[in-house]
Design a protein around this nucleic acid. Structure first.
Length: 756
DNA sequence: GAGCACTGC
């Protein structure tokens, strides 16, 4: 409070209430404001003064210009109703369609009501994506006529653009707020928390909803606003109702978009890519000027479709250049370099002759254009009705991507992309009947489609005792929770009663999957923590290898030069080290067919992980003897990934995963120069057939020594794998092992038996 | 002998 000039200098004795009857009243923009009891009229008056109520500085011309625009937003005209509802309720559900202005305006309204700056508190507004948190914060700082990072700021991974004591309105990623909650379960710094884009149902937002619902009962002073799209509102209202049969109040704001006419096909389309190409060309020939957005499922499909559209469009132009204009086709997916992604904002090609037919731009995109990126000027949307979606099978512990039908909500979102600048049309390549009867209402929330080992560790760290009975908006399958608990128990992050161990508490502090966190924390015992830090960082960023279609051989040759034959993990280490030795040179990366973007990310992640290691006194050490070092690295890998081991089966190059007995092959990208008996893998991918990817050679002795519990033979199904292990155990009998078990590195004690 | 929907800490 003392660092607040407003209170400290003028009204030091009043707590959070701006006094009335003061002689300063005429100059005081917040005169008479009672926290959480302000009216729309009061706020509008304050906004129109000459003095910025939060900085005491004169308001700029730009502020006044922006205020003019803000007044036209649908949400602005409902200010009175908003303040009434906000004053009277602890939790509000709000729906505001695209263009309502909710993301920029509501947090400001809340700031005028909460007056967080007078109490040393903050108003937080979460976003699912970093770019959104940054760009909205910038916009709102402009609207409030303050410098970004002062009164208004943002907080995302790698960047905290806030000033403690000054910032009172903070945009942040949902994951960032969840991290904060792990160390401050009451979230005491916040007076109001706004969860924006709740309908996207990210894992972090789902967990936050559960936490905030419980916290609202404990902290009566905490207000919560959940903002979502229309379709989900009732679900959230019921979830956040005070009792089982009352619902949280709904605040509704209309959007500001143009109508979109929707067309369906008469019959189902057997080949959606072919149908999509046909539809794009039909639009180009027959419809008025305006750009087209086509949704497909992945990189290969998109590049392929772009080629075909381009060929056919050129044909059309050649046949009839008097009535068909030029067409450009632009692919869009996340692994494209940013420079190429920018091409979607290029204007459509101009007509060939001054009065010739207009040119047209076609963007062929993954789901990235459904939420993350908006392209202005789109008038036509072609929606085949599919996207790649993550699915998790807890039985075999595998996450995979499957091309699946989209939901109605998703189809609606796609159609909406046609109406951002003027009335548009959406061509759905499925029948209206299928839309009505076959599509699910909502996309399944992420929590139902993911491996939850990370989430479960977070929840336990958050103090949630009974994971099965936690009040989820949608409860995950019990088997998924059991799988997560089992893994965390084997990793010694949780004890046999499900309580967090000291090791688990540290693991939870790392922004990593539990396996990675574990191997990193135990790595000092193997004197290779510098190296494990690098490998962990490299495993936490997108694929560094680039393999252009027309230069596959060159790319493979470049990769061969960097490959370490004992394992892909060592190759990743080598790549990073070479990158650093070559001074992070962009050209070096380019010449070796490596993604400079991914390498730079690895650098960033590595630095963050190193800070976390230092914070918890995890030593950073290396062995000088490289051969011994490479052995130790693979031993440390075993401590994290012992549940992802496969054993060679026969001579055909097939492997059997341990315990699950899935038949898998080494992925063609694997750099091993032979077929070792035992391998440890990072990923199980299900494409043309089941593959394991990022694979290293390990020894059976290590499995038994460093993952004693998991490789307890009495828990093994009979089979070749068990026999092979039995031979190793027999051979080893008589010799004694010197090393401590890899279970709980901190306590250096043997893991307890924990099998059924 | 082949892929990497998209986010997030």
């Amino acid at each position: 409070m003392s660092d607040n000039p407003y209170l400290a200098h003028r009204h030091p004795t009043q707590r959070g209430v701006v006094p009335s009857g003061s002689s300063l009243s005429t100059k005081e923009p917040l005169y008479g404001f009672l926290p959480r009891n302000v009216t729309g009229a009061q706020v509008r008056t304050a906004m129109e003064q000459e003095i910025n109520p939060f900085t005491k500085l004169p308001l700029s011309a730009q502020y006044k210009k922006i205020l003019e625009m803000r007044r036209k937003l649908p949400v602005y005209s409902q200010m009175d109703d908003f303040f009434k509802m906000f004053s009277a309720n602890q939790i509000i559900v709000m729906v505001g369609e695209t263009g309502s202005g909710k993301t920029t305006q509501i947090p400001q309204f809340v700031a005028y009501s909460d007056l967080p700056h007078t109490k040393g508190k903050l108003v937080a507004c979460t976003q699912p994506r970093r770019v959104a948190a940054m760009s909205v914060a910038k916009r709102v700082a402009d609207e409030m006529d303050v410098q970004l990072g002062r009164q208004v700021g943002y907080s995302i991974r790698f960047e905290d653009m806030t000033e403690p004591g000054t910032t009172f309105l903070k945009y942040m990623t949902d994951g960032m707020l969840l991290r904060e909650a792990m160390n401050d379960p009451n979230l005491d710094r916040y007076s109001t928390i706004i969860l924006d884009e709740a309908h996207e149902r990210t894992l972090a937002t789902d967990i936050l909803m559960g936490l905030l619902k419980a916290l609202a009962k404990k902290r009566k002073d905490l207000k919560i606003i959940v903002m979502s799209a229309t379709l989900d509102a009732l679900k959230f209202q019921k979830y956040f109702g005070l009792t089982s049969d009352t619902a949280a109040p709904l605040f509704k704001v209309p959007g500001r978009t143009h109508p979109v006419e929707v067309f369906y096909t008469q019959e189902p389309e057997p080949d959606y890519v072919e149908a999509a190409i046909r539809t794009v060309l039909m639009i180009h020939r027959a419809e008025d000027p305006g750009d087209i957005l086509l949704f497909l499922t992945g990189e290969e499909e998109i590049e392929d479709a772009c080629r075909k559209i381009k060929l056919e469009a050129d044909d059309l132009v050649n046949q009839d250049s008097d009535s068909v204009g030029p067409l450009v086709c632009i692919p869009l997916y996340s692994s494209l370099p940013p420079q190429q992604q920018q091409r979607i904002f290029d204007p459509a090609p101009s007509a060939r002759t001054p009065d010739g037919p207009a040119g047209r731009k076609v963007v062929v995109s993954t789901n990235i254009a459904e939420t993350s990126l908006t392209i202005d000027g789109i008038v036509y949307v072609v929606d085949p009705g599919f996207s790649k979606q993550k699915v998790y099978n807890p039985r075999i512990r595998v996450e995979s991507l499957l091309v699946s039908p989209i939901s109605k909500a998703s189809a609606q979102q796609r159609a909406g992309r046609a109406g951002r600048t003027r009335p548009g049309k959406c061509f759905r390549l499925y029948t209206e009947k299928d839309f009505m009867t076959e599509l699910e209402e909502q996309t399944h929330p992420e929590i139902l489609r993911s491996n939850l080992s990370n989430t479960v560790l977070e929840l336990v760290k958050l103090g949630i005792k009974d994971l099965v009975r936690f009040d989820y908006v949608d409860a995950p399958a019990p088997e998924t929770l059991m799988r997560a608990l089992e893994l965390l128990n084997y990793l010694a992050a949780l004890d046999d009663d499900g309580n967090l161990t000291p090791l688990g508490a540290i693991m939870a502090e790392f922004p990593l999957d539990p396996q990675l966190a574990k191997m990193l924390i135990v790595s000092p015992e193997f004197k290779c923590s510098h190296e494990m830090l690098t490998i962990t960082a490299m495993m936490s960023v997108p694929n560094v290898w680039i393999r252009p279609n027309n230069q596959r051989r060159e790319a493979d040759a470049a990769k061969a030069l960097l490959t370490v034959p004992d394992g892909d993990h060592l190759t990743l280490l080598n790549v990073y080290n070479q990158y650093v030795q070559n001074m992070h040179d962009k050209n070096w990366a380019w010449q070796h067919y490596l993604s400079q973007r991914a390498l730079a990310q690895a650098d960033n992640v590595r630095a963050q992980l190193q800070r976390t290691m230092e914070r918890f006194d995890v030593d950073l050490i290396s062995l000088a003897d490289e051969r011994k070092l490479y052995v130790n690295i693979r031993q440390a890998l075993v401590c994290g990934f012992f549940m992802q081991v496969a054993h060679k089966e026969g001579e055909k190059g097939n492997y059997l995963t341990v315990k699950d007995n899935q038949v898998v092959g080494l992925h063609p990208s694997c750099g091993l120069d032979n077929q070792p008996d035992w391998v440890i893998f990072n990923e199980f991918v299900l494409t043309t057939r089941p593959y394991i990817r990022t694979v290293s050679d390990v020894k059976a002795e290590w499995l038994i020594e460093f993952a004693t519990n998991y490789f307890d033979l009495s828990s093994f199904p009979d089979g070749e794998t068990k026999q092979a292990l039995q031979r190793v155990v027999n051979k080893k009998a008589g010799k004694s092992s010197g090393r401590v078990d890899g279970g709980d590195a901190r306590n250096s004690k043997k893991q307890k038996k924990n099998h059924k």
